[in-house]
């Protein structure tokens, strides 16, 4: 042990020699500690109550908003309570009927001669593409094939 450490130990021992080991005013200190602990505990409880209440209120408000949203919002296909309605086919009324299309196709084919057969066939395809209904397209193909 070096000299400074020896001196420090000596000083510490002497300075503490006449000091009572019992802390002065311990009762007063502990009373104050108890009171402060109770105040802190009460403050903690009150904070828990406050935040708990705020959380419950926020949850209730969110639930109410959701219910109101369901009540006033228009029916959409995404809603689980809605049955999906069939989507009407596009502009069928403006399109020629299948029978008319077939008649047009037959007329075009009947007028065809050797040189113009490709042009007239393309015209038939155009009519059929405008209609876009697969079963009739196959039917016309069958007709063209001569079945």
């Amino acid at each position: 042990m070096n000299e400074d450490a020896k001196l420090n130990d000596f000083l510490k021992e002497r300075l503490e020699a006449g000091v009572s080991g019992e802390p002065p005013r311990l009762d007063a200190i502990l009373q104050a500690a108890s009171a402060a602990a109770q105040i802190r505990a009460a403050a903690r409880r009150s904070r828990v109550r406050l935040w708990g209440g705020l959380l419950a209120a926020a949850s209730l408000a969110a639930l109410c908003l959701f219910a109101v949203h369901l009540w006033v919002s228009p029916a959409t296909p995404s809603s689980p309570h809605q049955v999906a309605q069939p989507v009407p086919s596009q502009s069928l009324t403006s399109m020629p009927s299948p029978e008319q299309t077939l008649v047009s196709a037959i007329d075009l084919l009947s007028m065809a001669d050797g040189d113009n057969i490709e042009v007239e066939t393309n015209a038939v395809e155009d009519v059929l593409l405008a209609w876009q209904d697969a079963p009739y397209e196959y039917a016309v193909s069958d007709l063209l094939a001569g079945n």
Binding site: K12, L15, E16, V19, S20, G21, E22, P23, P24, L26, I29, L30, A33, S34, A37, Q38, R40, A41
Partner: peptide
């Protein structure tokens, strides 16, 4: 223990443990 649980006995033990040197420090 005192700060979180309000355990006053823990604080009392701390006060007793540090009483001697603290009084010597203050006396100086």
């Amino acid at each position: 223990a005192y700060a979180r649980r309000g355990d006053v006995q823990s604080l009392a033990a701390l006060v007793r443990r540090h009483a001697t040197w603290m009084q010597a420090l203050l006396r100086g």
